[in-house]
């Protein structure tokens, strides 16, 4: 799917991180010091933020949205859309999006729904909000992204524990003069490559699903926790992302040299470096900002923007190509103008 949508603007991007910081050295009780050093050098992640166990993703969303509304001088009536893209909902039923409408005091004619996506979530969120605005359905939409992912990881899951962190973002999409271009792909044949297998209706949680499973290669799988096949995801990313970026540039009509920023999903330092070399752009236009936050899935792109925005000139942000890739499997790009966007420093709650 590729489409250009008109009459849009992203006026504000706000992000937040939980106060609790977990340095990788914490995991010395589970992994060897050599392993920890090797993984830190490879992923570029030295610590991550972890959500308070009593709080949900939506609690961080609400605090961020309230502060954003205060900082941006918005009233609840200024919004009529909520797009919530995450994988750690408050309940199976109902959606946290309607609860958020009430919590923020938004009008009752607000459109509010959840979308289940992780690493590609930011692209889906901006795309869906842009559809709502460009179609005339909404004037101004709040896009919520990010997850309390760490609690979905088993304590002995070395690979994921040392890369995934919790982080959240609230982005506003409203009527404006910009044209955004989107390109999205899905490949469900790889759905098992990032999965929490038990806990849905296909495989309800049971005594059996709580037991670890040892596969033919001796790897331990835990059905009630996030499983990620690192090699498969790396292969998917290296194979699919560079051609998608080239195709998206053609579709939007941008020369690669004219693009100010390639804002890629912050998967891990090694993958990003491999991708950057393959799309042939210099590090300054394809930043990595993971050292103290890790991979924050659907909020990794806005968090990178929050952490690095002072390095970017207004001119540089006129042509931003965002790219998300991962769970689903899925990938997508959004070509947007952020030159007039107020990007806030990251807040902590």
């Amino acid at each position: 799917m590729k489409v250009k949508l008109n009459g849009l603007k992203i006026p504000h991007i706000a992000t937040c991180l939980p106060k609790k910081v977990v340095p990788m050295s914490t995991y010395e009780k589970f992994f060897s010091a050599k392993d920890i050093k090797r993984i830190i050098e490879s992923t570029g992640v030295e610590s991550v933020h972890v959500a308070d166990e009593n709080l949900c993703s939506s609690d961080y969303y609400a605090e961020t949205a309230k502060k954003l509304m205060y900082e941006g001088n918005f009233k609840p009536d200024d919004f009529d859309g909520i797009v919530m893209v995450f994988q750690t909902p408050d309940y199976n039923i109902p959606t946290a999006a309607t609860i958020m409408q009430d919590r923020l005091g938004l009008p009752k004619d607000t459109v509010a729904f959840e979308i289940n996506y992780g690493c590609t979530g930011y692209i889906y969120g901006i795309y869906q909000a842009s559809l709502l605005v460009s179609s005339g359905s909404c004037r101004r939409v709040l896009v919520f992204t990010g997850d309390t992912h760490v609690r979905t990881l088993h304590e002995e899951d070395r690979a994921n524990r040392m890369i995934l962190g919790d982080g959240f973002a609230v982005t506003i999409v409203e009527r404006g003069e910009d044209e955004f271009a989107f390109e999205i792909f899905s490949d469900g044949s790889g759905y098992k490559q990032i999965i929490i297998e038990a806990g849905g209706f296909r495989m309800p949680k049971s005594e059996k699903t709580s037991e670890p499973i040892i596969d033919a290669e001796g790897n331990t799988h835990r059905l009630e926790y996030t499983f990620m096949d690192g090699m498969a995801i790396m292969n998917f990313s290296l194979k699919q992302v560079p051609p998608l970026i080239e195709d998206s540039l053609k579709f939007v009509g941008w020369e690669k040299n004219s693009v100010g920023l390639f804002a890629l999903h912050q998967a891990n330092g090694l993958i990003l470096d491999f991708l950057r070399r393959r799309i042939k752009v210099e590090p300054e236009r394809c930043p990595i900002a993971m050292k103290n936050i890790g991979n924050t899935a659907g909020s990794s792109i806005p968090l990178m923007l929050s952490l690095c925005h002072e390095n970017f000139s207004e001119n540089q942000l006129e042509k931003v190509l965002m790219c998300g890739f991962g769970v689903g499997l899925s990938l997508g790009t959004a070509a947007v103008n952020l030159s007039k966007t107020k990007i806030y420093d990251t807040w902590e709650f």
Binding site: S42, M231, M234, L270
Partner: peptide, 8 residues
């Protein structure tokens, strides 16, 4: 030589 090691 796990997935991280492979990338390295």
């Amino acid at each position: 030589w796990d997935s991280v090691g492979h990338m390295r």
